[in-house]
């Protein structure tokens, strides 16, 4: 009798927990939409702030939107240049050296776990050491560090599943290793690579702590890598602290735009992930 009651109680607790996950997501998105939507006008997304981002009542957040896109795209490109060869090497050149590859995976998982604020602090140190000022470039480099392990491990996870026989048969046809890598592996896992890139892009565009030290902040759209830049998360963070309601509203609008971008990225990540499973030869 008693054990039946116990089971029932826990069963309902489990259902409540699971349902609450869905509700939480709805609640969070609804809150952001509710506060942001009234201020999401054409003016908001087509103009830069007028009279300073912290005090000016007029203008929009175009500087942050463009800045975010620049920053994340730049970081993704740099990270890709390093991620692609590393994940290819782990699954082609070093495929037989299991211990070494697992060691690398372990290091990458540890890197993944380092909080972005630490990357920010490191980026800042590096910046001073190299004599670069806070700029788009410094931000791009810092974010690239931060998304690097995410990108490599995601690519690695899909490349890991490419059967050894496929690689071996490509070698048997007389291909060089780089040909196997780019003509076989990259083609075979292409949707998976896109997924990894999108995932990294999503992480990069949403992060504050890594860029807080390194990009500075400006009302203008940067025209060179050495200029400071605004980003959407920074726009939320800084403008929310302003005492002026109109400025705060810009923060809410920025939060909504950021959320929309993240949702789009999430959904396309899933889409490519699904397509990937269909096209992969097993």
């Amino acid at each position: 009798m008693w054990r039946k009651i116990e089971e029932k109680v826990f069963y309902y607790l489990m259902i409540i927990s699971t349902v609450s996950l869905g509700l939480l997501l709805v609640l969070i998105v609804a809150t952001i939409v509710y506060r942001g939507l009234p201020y999401l006008s054409w003016e908001m997304i087509s103009q830069t702030p007028k009279g300073g981002y912290y005090f000016g009542r007029e203008g929009g957040i175009l500087n942050a939107i463009i800045g975010s896109l620049y920053l994340s795209s730049g970081a993704v490109i740099i990270a890709l240049v390093i991620s692609l060869p590393v994940s290819l090497a782990m699954n082609i050149h070093l495929k037989r050296r299991k211990k070494l590859v697992n060691g690398l995976r372990f290091i990458l998982d540890l890197l993944w776990g380092i909080p972005s604020i630490v990357y920010g602090a490191f980026g800042f140190t590096l910046m001073i050491y190299l004599g670069i000022k806070a700029s788009l470039l410094a931000g791009i480099i810092t974010v690239a560090f931060f998304i690097l392990p995410i990108m490599i491990r995601s690519m690695d996870e899909v490349m890991k599943n490419v059967p050894l026989s496929l690689i071996e048969s490509a070698f048997a046809l007389g291909s060089t290793r780089s040909e196997v890598a780019f003509k076989v592996m990259v083609r075979q896992t292409f949707p998976g690579i896109i997924t990894a890139v999108l995932l990294a892009f999503g992480r990069g565009i949403g992060d504050v702590a890594a860029v807080l030290f390194t990009t500075g902040y400006t009302d203008n759209i940067p025209t060179s890598l050495m200029q400071q830049t605004a980003t959407l998360p920074l726009a939320v963070f800084f403008q929310l602290g302003s005492p002026i309601p109109e400025v705060q509203n810009r923060a809410y609008a920025a939060a909504l735009i950021l959320t929309i971008i993240i949702l789009v990225v999430s959904i396309s990540t899933r889409y490519f992930g699904k397509r990937f499973r269909k096209t992969l030869i097993k």
Binding site: G22, I28, T31, G206, I262, L263
Partner: peptide, 28 residues
């Protein structure tokens, strides 16, 4: 089926940037 339905919910929750969680925290 429910697990398949919940997986994207969990993934999206994981993808929401911390600054958004912060805004939500301030508001709610």
């Amino acid at each position: 089926r429910l697990l398949r339905f919940m997986q994207p919910v969990i993934d999206i929750l994981a993808g929401i940037p911390s600054v958004i969680y912060g805004v939500w925290g301030i508001l709610i």
